[in-house]
Every structure is written in structure tokens, then in C-alpha cells.
């Protein structure tokens, strides 16, 4: 029971952390709260299947072997995000954070309705890698193979991303831009490159979340990115806007809280789990309004 809970918390928290990183990366470089992130996830899910209005999905890209499929979907997510940046957010580069946020909300609505026009509104069954549901015996716990893969993949991605941010030139430039964008540009950081890079990374992370969601639920639904995006938003606020380690830590914490609530709430209250989670977050913010790891750039300087 308790070991089972640890795995549940780790895999859910890992997904939340990946999604929160996707939000925090973009917020760091251009102060954009990306309300289209959930729709990036949904688009990556639907990229697996061919456009039809039927209830049973016909696999398109999804029919590829995993070795090709995973890079293809991640590339799709990155490409979509870069395209969105070039078409929507580049013209808004000098707009206020509020206008950027509203613009991204509009982009999300446009993408969602585009999916509705192409695929119809009904959720579709997708069977992607059905073998991954098999349980594996670890000690006293029965853990689905998928959960182990998710935990491993999340650890790998977080490690690679940390290495990239610390060691590579693009990573260094991104961190500099997150600290003080104007100053970074004066010192020779190219704005377009850094911002496109951040969007590409964020889109790739959205695609990872999409793959995990499809493998877990076996459904493609136009609304499926929404709940996870909301949790990711909350994680970035709780972690301190613009702090990447904060976003990861808060994502993990929310995943753990969610798994605990699922396990220990009485049956009657379980459908309200997310409502409890959101209320818990508002409560946390009452005591630390600036988040747990507030970054220096998050507060306006006087």
C-alpha cells in the first residue's frame, strides 16, 4: 500500500513537473503565462491519429515504431510551439504580460476549435503501446510498467535539461535572459534565438506529457490538456514565478498531494479531489504569496 503510493506520487508528480517546466521556461524568458500549453498537449495527442469524426481513432503517426514515433511527436510539439511563437507571440513581443496572457488564451481557444473542426468533439479511443499496462511486482507493490517508464523518463529529462541549462551556450543564455532580459541582450544574447529555443523546449515537453497521457488513459480528447495545464500553472505560482527548480519541486509536491488525497479522502469526497487540491494551493499562497522559491526577477524593482 505505502510503496504503491510512493510510485503513484512519483509518476504523477513527474508528469506535473514536466508540464510545469514547460510553462516556467517560457515565463522565464518572456514573462508569458502560456495558456495555450494545454492545447499544445492536445495537438500532440491528436497528431498521433488521422483526422476523422469517427469514435475509433485511426493511427497515423501513432502507427510508427516507438523509436521513430517518440522523436516525431516531440519534434511536432517543438515545431508547433516555435510556429506559435513566430505567428502570435513575436508580434506581441513588447506587449504587457497581461496582453501576452490574453493572447495565449485566444491562441488556445483557436487551436482547440481547430481540433474540434478536424476531429469532431467526441473522445476517441487510442490504443498506443497497450503492453505497458502490465503490472510488475516490486516488493509488496504491483506497479504498472508504464509508471516505472514514466518515472525513469522524467528523471532522464530533468537530468538532461539541468545539464543543458548549466553547461550549454543556449542554456546559459536562457538563464541569463530569465534573470534580466534587457541586460542579457546588451551583452550579446540574441533574443529571437533564446525565445525560439525556450518555445521549442516547452513544446517538446508538452509532447512528452501528451505521450504519457495517451499511454495512461488510452483516449484522445480535445480537452485533455486543460487539467494538467492548470496544475502546471499552480505549480509555477507555488514554486515562485520564473524559478525552474521551484516549478519542478512544486510539480512534484502537487503530484504527491494529489496521490495522497486520492488515497485518503473518503469515497464520497473523492470526485472533489481536484477541488481540494486547488483549495490547498490557495491556502499555501495565503502564507507565502510570493511562492516558495521566488526568483529575483519576479518582483518589480523599485
Amino acid at each position: 500500500m505505502s510503496l504503491q503510493l510512493v510510485f503513484d506520487a512519483l509518476s504523477l508528480g513527474g508528469i506535473y513537473a514536466i508540464a510545469a517546466l514547460g510553462i516556467a521556461l517560457i515565463f522565464g524568458v518572456m514573462k508569458l503565462v502560456n495558456f495555450a500549453h494545454g492545447q499544445f498537449i492536445a495537438c500532440a495527442v491528436f497528431a498521433l491519429i488521422l483526422p476523422t469524426a469517427d469514435a475509433v481513432a485511426v493511427l497515423g503517426l501513432g502507427a510508427l515504431p516507438a523509436v521513430l514515433l517518440i522523436p516525431a511527436i516531440i519534434g511536432f510539439g517543438a515545431g508547433l510551439a516555435v510556429l506559435a511563437e513566430a505567428l502570435v507571440f513575436r508580434p506581441l513581443r513588447h506587449a504587457s504580460p497581461v496582453a501576452l496572457m490574453v493572447g495565449s488564451f485566444a491562441l488556445g481557444v483557436a487551436l482547440q476549435n481547430l481540433l474540434l473542426v478536424l476531429y469532431g468533439g467526441r473522445p476517441k479511443a487510442i490504443s498506443l503501446w497497450p503492453d505497458l499496462g502490465q503490472p510488475v511486482q516490486i516488493g509488496a507493490a504491483q506497479v504498472p510498467l508504464l509508471q516505472l517508464i514514466v518515472i525513469g523518463a522524467v528523471a532522464l529529462i530533468l537530468g538532461a535539461l539541468a545539464l543543458m541549462l548549466k553547461r550549454s551556450r543556449l542554456g546559459l543564455e536562457m538563464r541569463a535572459a530569465a534573470e534580466d532580459f534587457g541586460m542579457a541582450r546588451l551583452l550579446g544574447v540574441r533574443a529571437n534565438r533564446v525565445i525560439s529555443g525556450a518555445f521549442a523546449l516547452s513544446g517538446a515537453l508538452a509532447a512528452v506529457v501528451a505521450l504519457v497521457l495517451v499511454a495512461q488513459t488510452g483516449v484522445a480528447d480535445v480537452r485533455m490538456g486543460g487539467q494538467i495545464m492548470l496544475v502546471a500553472f499552480i505549480a509555477t505560482v507555488v514554486g515562485g514565478m520564473g524559478s525552474l527548480p521551484g516549478a519542478v519541486a512544486a510539480g512534484m509536491a502537487l503530484g504527491a498531494a494529489s496521490a495522497l488525497l486520492q488515497a485518503f479522502l473518503p469515497d464520497a469526497a473523492r470526485p472533489f479531489r481536484d477541488a481540494f487540491l486547488y483549495a490547498l494551493v490557495i491556502l499555501v499562497l495565503l502564507f507565502r504569496p510570493q511562492g516558495i522559491f521566488a526568483s529575483a526577477s519576479a518582483k518589480p524593482r523599485v
Partner: peptide, 8 residues
């Protein structure tokens, strides 16, 4: 603050 309030 402003943006965090919007998300909340």
C-alpha cells in the same frame, strides 16, 4: 501579485 492572482 497581478499575474499570480490571474492564475489563482
Amino acid at each position: 501579485s497581478g499575474i499570480a492572482a490571474s492564475i489563482a
